[in-house]
Amino acid sequence: MTDTREFLDKFRDTVLALGGRRLVTPTDVIGGWRGFVEECETGYADNIYEFQNDLGVRNLIMKILDSPTLRNYSQMEWVREEIGQVDARYRALLLEPEVRPGRPWWEARIPRLAGRELAEDFVTEYGVRVAIAE
């Protein structure tokens, strides 16, 4: 069993090397993804550029999960489980057709509910209408 301090140091170093700046602990990363998904559950209220920027946390997560440096730490099992739970919540929000084929699943589809501005951006960008959160 590896030391938790060692794991947290390696996690931080890996995230920083991958370009992460604010989210440097497993709790930060999971919380960032969970917070984004919670916003989407109630209808993400900003524009498509902010939506895509905030969705970028899932790209960072993919790189973390694929990291050879972190792969063998037992603590990553908890990280994977937590991410899996949040992933399931996000998948449940997404419309079925892919609007961005060839992208990872979290980028290929869009939430079925959005704030007015994002809903309008989805129509403009992808020609897809979604429910508007009031």
Rank of each mutant, 00 (worst) to 15 (best):
G56A: 10
W105Y: 13
V15Y: 03
W78S: 01
N47C: 12
C40T: 10
I132V: 15
G43D: 07
D13P: 13
E107L: 15
E41K: 06
R129H: 04
P101K: 09
I61D: 00
T2D: 01
L23A: 02
F11I: 04
R71A: 05
L23P: 00
A92K: 14
T4E: 07
V79R: 02
D28I: 04
R80L: 05
L8A: 11
G19K: 10
M1F: 02
D13Y: 14
L16P: 07
S74I: 00
L65M: 14
P68F: 14
P104I: 13
V57Q: 05
F51M: 06
W105N: 14
G19C: 06
W105P: 13
L118R: 08
W33R: 07
Y49G: 06
I64A: 09
R12G: 01
I61R: 07
D54N: 06
E125V: 08
G127S: 05
L8G: 05
L18Y: 05
E39W: 00
N53I: 14
R5E: 10
D3M: 15
V99E: 01
L65C: 12
A45I: 08
L118A: 10
R58D: 06
T124E: 05
G127Y: 04
G84S: 14
D54E: 04
E120H: 11
E117P: 04
F51R: 03
T14Q: 11
I61H: 03
D66G: 14
E98I: 13
T42F: 06
E77D: 13
I64L: 15
M62S: 14
N59F: 15
D54P: 00
V79T: 01
R100S: 14
R80P: 04
L94Y: 12
I30K: 03
L60D: 02
R5P: 06
R89C: 15
V29R: 09
